[in-house]
């Protein structure tokens, strides 16, 4: 291929990535909207190491080039991730679009990224120089700004094996399919012996990146449900203060109102 590379191994892909000015191409569903002709693609969808979904005992490792359909078909992927991924666009896009592509596009509307935020997922980034593991929240530095070096590839997404079971998720789009998130919400709660061991709340499509505020979450950690109930108003008020939505296809006021409504719905759902 002139002006395009389709490596079959990660090693080859990294060497190419280091040696040339290349745009990693996973599913193409974002790149091809522009359809730039004067570009050299690195097609990463035939690299076996980036196509696997495995449980290593510590993490569920989702290969970066797995398509949304492959994620939906995997028995290992948690339900929350499947629910979010199943709401992306429509079958043809889910057959092509990849997990790394959803991340690499840098959009706060990315439906799978929202789940990675509440899961506290990490990304395994690899280059010829070596590899590093970066928490998803650190990876997103701002609007379309990613902590990804020019020679690096996102190779795997590391999801904690547990913690996503008790969730509340909602995507708000303009219609029931082929919908870009106008807002999305995910909340997870981890209870042990009636005590909140962990809580995570994230909002998609409201700001430059997915929003998660760990300091606010701490308000409820270590509390019983009854204790948490007493904190409910303050907890909601803290989000009210923290969320400053951007205006887009819908107004900032609408986004804010729905964020708080869904936060309340999450708390209601979990008895808080």
């Amino acid at each position: 291929m002139v002006n395009g590379y389709m490596p079959l191994s990660l090693k080859e892909a990294l060497e190419l990535r280091a040696a040339h000015e290349l745009v990693p191409y996973g599913g193409g569903t974002d790149l091809m909207i522009e359809g730039e002709k004067d570009v050299c693609y690195l097609f990463v969808n035939k690299i076996a190491e980036m196509k696997k979904i495995v449980d290593d005992g510590q993490y569920l490792r989702i290969g970066a080039s797995c398509t949304f359909t492959e994620v939906l078909d995997s028995p290992l992927v948690p339900q929350l991730m499947k629910e979010a991924v199943s709401r992306i666009a429509a079958p043809a896009i889910r057959n092509a679009g990849t997990m790394a592509g959803n991340i690499g596009n840098g959009s706060a509307k990315a439906d799978s990224v929202l789940i990675e935020y509440v899961a506290g997922a990490k990304l395994r980034l690899v280059s010829v120089r070596g590899e590093r593991v970066v928490p998803i929240e650190a990876f997103y530095k701002g609007r379309k700004e990613l902590d990804l070096a020019k020679d690096e590839l996102i190779v795997e997404i590391l999801l904690p094996r547990t913690g996503l079971e008790n969730y509340f998720y909602q995507k708000v789009g303009a219609r029931n399919a082929l919908a870009i998130s106008r807002l999305s919400f995910a909340g997870v709660l981890h209870l042990e012996d009636g005590v909140i061991r962990d809580i995570a709340v994230a909002f998609g499509a409201v700001a430059n990146t997915v929003l998660r505020f760990r300091d606010i979450e701490h308000m409820l950690i270590g509390k019983t449900i009854a204790e948490a109930k007493k904190e409910r108003a303050a907890f909601i008020a803290a989000y009210d203060a923290a969320i400053n939505p951007t205006r887009g296809r819908v107004s900032a006021e609408y986004r804010k109102a729905v964020c708080l409504n869904l936060l309340r719905a999450f708390l209601d759902d979990k008895g808080i």
């Binding site: 569903t29 969808n45 035939k46 429509a90």
Partner: peptide, 29 residues
């Protein structure tokens, strides 16, 4: 040409895809 209507759908290795959203290089093999 934006992957939003499906009129250009084709099958790629048996799966439905929007042909407007695929670069030729991706079709190798």
């Amino acid at each position: 040409k934006e992957g939003e209507c499906g009129a250009c759908s084709v099958l790629m290795d048996g799966e439905l895809i929007n042909s407007c959203m695929v670069a030729l290089g991706r079709c190798e093999g």
